[in-house]
Amino acid sequence: MTNFVLVAGAWLGAWAWDEVAAALRAAGHGVHPLTLSGLAERQGEPAGQQTHVRDIVDEIERLDLRDVVLVGHSYSGVPVGQAAERIRDRLTRVVFVDANVPVDGESFLAGWPSDEVRKAIEATGYWPPVTAEDCAGQGLTDEQIARFVHRATPHPGATATEPAVLTGDLGELAGTYVKCLLDGDEPWGAAAQLLESERWELVNLDTGHWPMFSQPRELARVLHESVTAP
């Protein structure tokens, strides 16, 4: 049985995957949404970049999961990519959902304009949650935006500013990159480079950056097909 380990991006916890998880379970998969340290019900727990990597690896080892499809959305692509290297013997596939791809020695914030975010982190230690305005144009209903904004929690700043640690080439792993087209036409930077590997495939979704809210059944279908296609 395939075991999906689902890790949401900044400000979110395991709750963000509720609808996707239900659809995957209905298809017969094992599903394990994960809340990272310092977020959602784990608010207040100290967290750095490597804390989040350990969160993922420790949960997979604690549950003794095999045939793992490790899914990282947005920010969590950075710790998920690092964790994927460390669980190679348990890993079937890694899936990045409109996610940042880790680069050895670089932080999540590297490579894009982030001065305001850095200033907020320096001042408070946290990356402030999204507002309703931040969610505009991403295929979300007013109800979905309200739920997202209400449940979002401040993101531990060190996880976004500390560097990733990689020892190998993620292109050697079997993987899927899901690009959400309302958030840009095509992958860029390290994601684009990763897709040059023959072991990686690109899947486009005609929705915004948070498909677990805007198109959960379609996202579940993509995840299911990533391991069931010939």
Rank of each mutant, 00 (worst) to 15 (best):
A174Q: 13
I56D: 09
W200K: 10
H150R: 14
A146Y: 02
A21P: 06
W15S: 08
G72S: 07
A27L: 06
G208Y: 10
P230D: 09
A26Y: 02
D183Q: 11
V101N: 06
A27Q: 13
K179E: 09
G189D: 12
A158I: 05
G105H: 12
V97I: 14
E116S: 15
E143W: 00
A99K: 01
I87C: 05
R118Y: 00
A120H: 13
S197Y: 06
R90H: 12
V97M: 07
R54V: 09
H155D: 14
V69M: 11
D134K: 05
V71T: 06
A22I: 00
P46N: 07
G189W: 09
L36R: 00
V68P: 10
G175Y: 11
R25D: 10
F213W: 14
N204F: 02
E225N: 14
D134Q: 07
L70D: 02
A136Q: 14
Q144Y: 01
V69K: 06
C135G: 01
V5H: 04
A23C: 03
E41A: 07
D169L: 10
W210K: 00
V20C: 09
E143D: 14
F213M: 03
R90A: 12
R62M: 13
A164E: 13
A192T: 01
V95R: 11
G139M: 08
E116H: 11
P156C: 13
A23E: 14
D142N: 13
R118S: 03
D134M: 08
D169A: 09
R62C: 10
L195F: 06
A174H: 02
R66P: 00
A192W: 07
A110P: 02
R221A: 15
R66Q: 15
A99T: 05
V222Y: 15
D183E: 08
L195W: 05
V178L: 10
S107L: 10
S214E: 06
V53F: 05
G139Y: 04
E106G: 01
T176L: 15
E172G: 12
D115Y: 10
